[in-house]
Simulated scan of single mutants.
Amino acid sequence: MTTLLHIDASARKERSITRDLGERFKRQWRAVQPTDRFIYRDIGSSPPDFISESWIAAVFTPEEKRTDEQNVLLSLSDLLIEELTEADVIVISTPMYNYGMPASLKAWIDQIVRINKTFTFDLDRGDFPLEPTLSGKSLVLLTACGEFGFGENGARETMNHLGPHLRTLSKYLGADDIHEIRVEYQEFGDKRHKRSIESAYESISGTINNIAEKLELRQELDATASLARKS
């Protein structure tokens, strides 16, 4: 059974393009894999806490020396990391706000990209001391923006601080495989926007099939490796 973690980051509860994309993705996935498990977290409606000086101090305190207060402070982070660790597929449905990610999504990222949990730090590695601890996951980005041309070689490519930022962080989420489905032209509300929505809808099934094929291959490789260890 595959486990999917779905993160909704839109502040809108109604008429949200990204929430709609997320629901469509979930319905189409379940139509193909009805027994798979979804973990859902609506950070747009219930944002995680921002990290603080006390939070940082707790993170860098060895577990056996943490106070009860520090353990409480890190409890949400522990839960979010547990959800992430369990997931084979991460689905993030998020709008672009001011050319970047919503504050709620950044807060979620800051709670889970955590030393000795999702990455380790060792200066013996030289100039690249950080090493992710998770791997083998697929990441699906379902995004929407008011303008257009944020893709590769687009008129606003250099202004896109949403997709590239998440791609940079993806290795700390354990994602080796990344897919993005983007709706543009929202503020224009014209035929181009309608075509962009239709194109995004059409891309969902192909993305699901692509991920499902890779998951099957990964399971076959894991099974082969397990047999090899036993023989």
Rank of each mutant, 00 (worst) to 15 (best):
N71L: 12
N71D: 09
V72I: 13
L73N: 04
L73H: 05
L74M: 12
D78M: 02
D78C: 02
D78A: 12
D78H: 08
L79T: 15
L79C: 04
I81F: 01
E82F: 03
E82Y: 01
E83D: 15
L84E: 03
L84K: 01
A87G: 07
A87E: 07
A87W: 00
D88R: 01
V89R: 05
S93G: 12
M96H: 09
Y97V: 12
G100T: 14
M101K: 07
P102C: 02
P102M: 14
A103L: 04
A103H: 03
L105E: 03
L105Y: 09
A107E: 01
W108I: 14
D110L: 08
Q111I: 04
I112P: 00
V113K: 08
V113Q: 14
I115V: 15
N116R: 15
K117W: 06
F119V: 08
T120D: 10
T120V: 06
F121A: 12
L123N: 05
L123Y: 11
F128C: 08
F128M: 10
L130R: 10
P132I: 00
T133K: 06
T133D: 04
S138P: 13
V140K: 00
C145S: 14
G146K: 09
E147H: 12
F148A: 14
G149R: 03
G151R: 11
G151K: 10
E152N: 10
E152H: 13
R156L: 14
M159W: 13
N160T: 07
G163P: 00
P164L: 02
P164G: 00
H165M: 12
R167N: 08
R167W: 03
L173D: 06
G174Q: 05
D177A: 01
I178L: 12
I181G: 01
E184F: 01
E184L: 10
Q186R: 11
Q186H: 04
Q186N: 03
F188V: 10
D190M: 09
D190T: 10
D190N: 15
H193P: 01
S196M: 09
S196R: 11
I197K: 13
I197W: 14
E198F: 04
S199R: 07
Y201H: 13
I204P: 10
I208W: 07
N209C: 02
E213K: 09
K214P: 07
L215A: 08
